[in-house]
Every structure is written in structure tokens, then in C-alpha cells.
Design a protein around this nucleic acid. Structure first.
Length: 597
RNA sequence: GCACUCGUAGUUCAACUGGAUAGAAUACCGGAUUUCGGCUCCGGGGGUUGAGGGUUCGAAUCCUUCCGAGUGCACCA
């Protein structure tokens, strides 16, 4: 059992004995003791005044004294104001390492029986992926990994926005101005090529509008009557009727985009278990709306359009079906959500990784699903994240200030390659190994930088700072791991395989050792917390603290110069546990760690 | 206009969900180590937590009023 749990039980019992009071274990909260005081766990005693009928300081003393006398775990205590700081016996910490060394997969919680779906990425096929998508993808992937570590079964999915007027725009522009250009003929990545024609459409559209305005039309009229937009609308109708020529062009161009995106996802190191295509799902939801009408959850207006009234819940009325019977975004999302629970009947939760500008949309969506009587609706979660700003300000595609995902990743790889070569520590690496390392480092830096910030918060992406290899960065942690790996390699060469039966004589630890072991004992708590809060940043912060604390130990305590062989064995086992925690923690962020760098 | 989110060292981020003298990183200044691995470690300065008021033994955190930033309020997706 965990030290923290044992302590809580002791405290509960102490309350029984000392004050004849029932204090449940789950009512007790222990917090880490601040660095400047002795001890590891702190019990805040201010609230107990009523129970003990004494002031907080005396209360703390009584409890501390009792725990020190009656338990093996508490070796000492001190009281500052109403704070009771408890010092734990060193052999308890040794035990923690013994337990971890015995564990097969440290950092993996037992199966929960819960099954969750994580949706992320879901791009528009007209626009190549950019920095904002990177935050989305890394977040979604990481949350999926964190859910797995919490013992849940996970399905990673995305919905691909592959139909609608915007798709017809790029198709039309390609048809008009493309001269048969293909990714092969131009050497462009498929998604970039299609994106270019989307931009081209917009340019031509604006030209036509300007011409019409010159001829005396109002701007609104011009926007509606420009030939190019009329043609695009016609194309959409043809697409819906699956007219062969339009349909095959659609398939061809989408194919290019998927190839392009595929390459980008590969580079990012993210993947999906199942893809949903809007072209398959856009008709879903209509029958649900019909059912909702019958149940009088929704209502019809005079013109025949269908609405839901959410004013009682502090929201607005929301349109679900147009007067002509066609559906809107919300309708599709309702249908898709229900479809997914049909696809995976044991699903208990969906997590949608979507930017915070859609918070209102998801609030409405979940509320509608709840009103329709779906019990899982309340479990659904919008993993909302803030925008990524650049030092120059907001990213705006119109002003060309967008940071392209492919370009950025390439830059990170180049920088890490240059940096690594400069250090000259990788002699003996094959070219393939070296390239893998650059990728591990470059992407690690990028992912860590984007994930260390609380997802809810808007963040600033500074390209200069993100490529740094020291401070609170991915490479710093990767470096710490590589160094421990070096220690373990050396230990093996010298024949010091950690043997847990040797630990028994180790009874006195250095303060830095206790610091590190305390953090190790918190690993699983952090995984739970990250899952509960949907926040990879908790893991990122934790691993950084762990790496830093280990470095402190490393500086202070020598491993191989230690004469006591049991201590030496202990420190190797202890280092191994730290390496494991770093590796596992980083994998929860989708970041690999090298053995050498 | 209405709704939601946010405001913390020069800068980028934390703060265990109401706990101690608000912590890291970065940059700057000073020192240690020169090895198991160089990107390591230690110390220093730097804060009226946007401003005021309230609740509390105790507030960056909760309530309230201002000020400032952002997002949303489509028969677009």
C-alpha cells in the first residue's frame, strides 16, 4: 500500500483515539511539505480546532506526537503554525523502490472497464495543417495515451470534413486553372496543391465581385451573383447527385489531400483507429430530429424549420433543420454522436478535441443529447484548448502569418540535427540511427513545448525558445534519460545488476534521494490527475520536476564511488526506476526518449 | 449589447482546487564540478497576483464593482 494511504489510516485512527471522532480516510488531505521545512507530508490542522477543542498548533502537536509514538512510518514531526509536517522513516522509501522494481509495467493502472473515444484533428481538407493543428493533434493523442494508462480502452478517431461548398471551390478552381496539374507533375504535396487552388478560388471570386460592383451591383448582390460562386453551387448539387465527372474529380483530389495529410500525421507520430467521413455522415441526424419532434423535445416554426428551445437552460433557440429539410452542422453532430455509440456499444464517453471557439456549440450539443434521453450525454467532454499565438501576434491565414506544420517540423529536425552534430556525441551512430535521433529530439522539443501548457489556456509559441535544449524543455528531459541510460549501461558492464534482496541494509538515505523517491511514489497519482483534468501539462510538469530532482541527486551523491555495495545496488535500482518513469511519462505525451544522445 | 474565458517576476509558464514567506524556466550577476556525459549543480536580485471592496483563522483561487485582452452570439462548417 502507498505511504500516503497508510498515513491517512493512521491519522483516522489517531482521531478516534485522541478525540473520539470519526474522520474518514477520504476526508483527509495531505499535501507535500514545502521545501524549506523538514518532512514530506503535511497535514493542515486549522479545520480540526472544533474537534480537538484546542488551537491549531496544539492540535497539530498532539497528532504529531501520537503518530510518532504509535507508528513505524512516522519518524518525526514538526509544527509550524497549524501545519503538521511529517517525516517518514527512510526504510519506507526503500520499500517504495523495492515495489517499483518488482512492478512489470510501472505507470499502467489496472483495467477500469471504461471505454472512451477520443476525437482529434478533424481538419478541413482544403487547408494544409498548421501550428494550431499541431496543438490539437498532440493534445488528442496524449489524452488518448493518458486514458489508456488510466486503464481505459481507447478509440482514436477523427471526422474528415470532406464535403460541402468549400470542397467544390477548390475543385472548381483546379478545373478552371489547373491545366491538369497533379502532385506528381508539380512535385507538391497533395494537401498543399489542393490548398493552393482553394486560395486561387478566393482570389478569382474577389476579382469577379469587384467587377460586378464596378458595374453598379451592391456588394451583397455581387457576392451572391458572381459566376464562379454560382458554378461552385451547381457543382455541389451535381456532387450530391453523384454525377460521375464531379464525383471522380472529388475522389481524385481528396486522394491527394489524404496522401498529404498521411505524410504529415506520420511525421507527427499520431494515428487513428477509425476515420469518419462527413460525406458518409452528413445525412445522419435527420431521423433523430424527427423523433425529437414527436417527443416534443423540438418544435417546428411556421416556415417548416425545426428548432430546439434552450432558453430555460440559459442558452438560445437553435436551428436543427432548415425549412427545405436540409440539415445543419448541429444536426450532423447529433447524428454522428449517436452513430458512434452504435458502432461501439460499450462506449461510455466521447472526448472531442476542438478549439475553444466552439465551446458554445458543444454545450448545446451535449444538452440536446441529454434532452433526447441519451444517458451517456453527460459523460461527454469537450477538450477545449486555446489558440496558439505567435510573438508577432495572432495567426491569420489571410495575412500569410500561418506557421505550416510540415515546415515547422522540418525546421525543428534541422535544428536538432545541427545541435547534435555540434556536440559530437554520436560517433558510432549509423545514418539511420542519427536521423531517428534528430527526429526524436526535434519533435520532442515541439511536443513538449506545446503540451506543457494547460490546454485551456491560450499560449504563445516562440520558435526561438521552443528549440532550446535546456530549461523546462523536452530535450532537457530526454538528456536526463540518456544520461541515466549511460549509468545503467556502465552498471551492467561492471556487473552490478540491481538485486532487491540487497536493499535490506540500506536504512539511511540522502535528502535528495528521498525527494526523488517521493516523486516516484506520486507518479500514479499524477496519471490519475491528468486523466481527471484532461491535462497532459500535469504529466509534463511532473516529469520535469522528476528529472530536475534526479539531477540534483546526481550532483550530490556519487553512484560508482560508493563503497557500500548494497547502497550501490540500491542507487542503480533507484536510477532505473527514474528512467522508467521518465520514459513512460514522456510516452504519455507522445514523446520518445533516446538511450544515447 | 448579451454570454463565456482569461489577466501572476522583464518574458514564458506553475501554484496539489481555500493553506505556510506566491514557485520554476529564461535572461542577467556570482560561485561549484571538470567525472558516470558536455545541455549538470548551488546562490543572488527581480511580485501591491490588473485595480478597489467583501466573505474567511487564511484568498492568486470564492462573491462583487470597475479596467484591459480574447472568443462566441449564422437557415457557414
Amino acid at each position: 500500500m502507498k505511504i500516503e494511504q497508510i498515513l491517512k489510516q493512521h491519522i483516522s485512527k489517531a482521531f478516534q483515539t485522541l478525540f473520539d471522532n470519526e474522520l474518514r480516510v477520504d476526508e483527509i488531505s495531505l499535501q507535500p511539505t514545502r521545501k524549506e521545512f523538514a518532512g514530506t507530508y503535511t497535514l493542515v490542522c486549522f479545520p480540526f480546532g472544533k474537534i480537538s477543542k484546542k488551537n491549531p498548533e496544539e492540535t497539530a502537536k498532539i497528532i504529531g506526537e501520537h503518530l510518532e509514538q504509535s507508528t513505524a512510518e512516522v519518524k518525526g514531526y514538526n509544527v509550524v503554525k497549524g501545519f503538521l509536517n511529517l517525516e517518514i522513516a527512510d526504510n519506507e522509501w526503500v520499500n517504495v523502490i523495492r515495489t517499483i522494481s518488482n512492478q512489470i509495467d510501472f505507470g499502467q493502472l489496472p483495467e477500469s472497464g471504461k471505454e472512451v473515444m477520443v476525437e482529434y484533428s478533424s481538419p478541413n481538407t482544403n487547408k494544409p495543417l498548421h501550428l494550431g493543428h499541431l496543438r490539437n493533434n498532440f493534445l488528442g493523442y496524449s489524452i488518448a495515451e493518458i486514458m489508456k494508462a488510466n486503464g481505459h480502452k481507447v478509440h482514436k478517431v477523427q471526422i474528415i470534413n470532406d464535403r460541402g461548398i468549400h470542397i467544390c471551390k477548390s475543385m472548381l478552381a483546379w478545373k478552371r486553372y489547373g491545366n491538369g496539374e497533379t502532385p506528381e507533375s508539380s512535385g507538391k504535396k497533395g494537401d498543399k496543391l489542393v490548398g493552393d487552388y482553394y486560395v486561387k478560388f478566393d482570389q478569382e471570386y474577389k476579382k469577379e465581385i469587384a467587377e460586378l460592383v464596378e458595374k453598379g451591383l451592391s456588394k451583397d448582390d455581387a457576392e451572391k451573383k458572381a459566376p464562379i460562386i454560382l458554378e461552385a453551387q451547381e457543382m455541389l448539387l451535381k456532387w450530391e447527385q453523384k454525377e460521375p465527372e464531379v464525383y471522380s474529380l472529388w475522389k481524385k483530389m481528396n486522394g491527394w489531400v489524404y496522401d498529404g495529410f498521411g505524410a504529415t500525421y506520420m511525421q507527427m507520430g499520431v494515428d487513428f483507429d477509425k476515420l469518419y467521413y462527413e460525406s458518409n455522415t452528413y445525412l445522419l441526424g435527420k431521423d433523430v430530429v424527427e423523433q425529437g419532434l414527436k417527443k416534443e423535445v423540438f418544435f417546428k416554426k411556421e416556415d417548416g424549420s425545426v428548432w430546439v428551445d434552450l432558453t430555460d437552460d440559459g442558452l438560445d433557440e437553435k436551428l436543427l433543420l432548415r425549412a427545405d429539410g436540409t440539415s445543419v452542422y448541429m444536426t450532423q453532430d447529433i447524428g454522428t454522436a449517436i452513430e458512434r455509440f452504435k458502432d461501439f456499444p460499450k462506449l461510455s464517453q466521447q472526448i472531442y478535441t476542438v478549439g475553444n471557439e466552439q465551446e458554445y456549440h458543444f454545450k448545446v450539443l451535449f444538452l440536446i443529447l441529454k434532452k433526447l434521453g441519451y444517458s451517456w450525454a453527460e459523460e461527454n467532454y469537450h477538450l477545449s484548448y486555446g489558440m496558439v499565438d505567435l510573438p508577432s501576434g495572432k495567426m491569420k491565414s489571410r495575412e500569410g502569418t500561418v506557421v505550416d506544420a510540415d515546415d515547422l517540423m522540418k525546421e525543428m529536425l534541422d535544428t536538432s540535427a545541427a545541435h547534435t552534430k555540434e556536440l559530437g556525441k554520436i560517433e558510432g551512430f549509423s545514418e539511420k540511427e542519427a536521423n531517428e535521433l534528430y527526429e526524436t529530439l526535434g519533435l520532442g522539443a515541439l511536443k513538449y513545448f506545446l503540451l506543457k501548457v494547460d490546454p485551456k489556456k491560450r499560449m504563445l509559441f516562440d520558435p526561438q525558445e521552443s528549440i532550446q535544449f535546456h530549461g523546462n524543455t523536452g530535450p532537457f528531459i530526454q538528456y536526463s534519460h540518456a544520461r541515466i541510460s549511460a549509468i545503467l549501461r556502465k552498471a551492467k558492464e561492471l556487473g552490478f545488476e540491481p538485486k532487491k534482496e540487497h536493499f535490506d541494509s540500506v536504512t539511511v538515505l540522502a535528502p535528495t534521494e528521498v525527494g526523488v523517491i517521493y516523486l516516484l511514489s506520486e507518479f500514479e497519482n499524477k496519471i490519475k490527475e491528468a486523466g481527471r483534468e484532461y491535462s497532459p501539462s500535469i504529466i509534463a510538469q511532473y516529469i520535469y520536476d522528476l528529472a530536475k530532482e534526479y539531477n540534483r541527486f546526481y550532483q550530490e551523491v556519487s553512484i560508482f564511488n560508493e563503497e557500500d555495495e548494497d547502497k550501490l545496488h540500491f542507487r542503480i535500482a533507484f536510477s532505473k526506476s527514474v528512467a522508467l518513469a521518465i520514459k513512460k511519462g514522456m510516452s504519455l505525451l507522445g514523446i520518445r526518449v533516446p538511450e544515447r544522445m
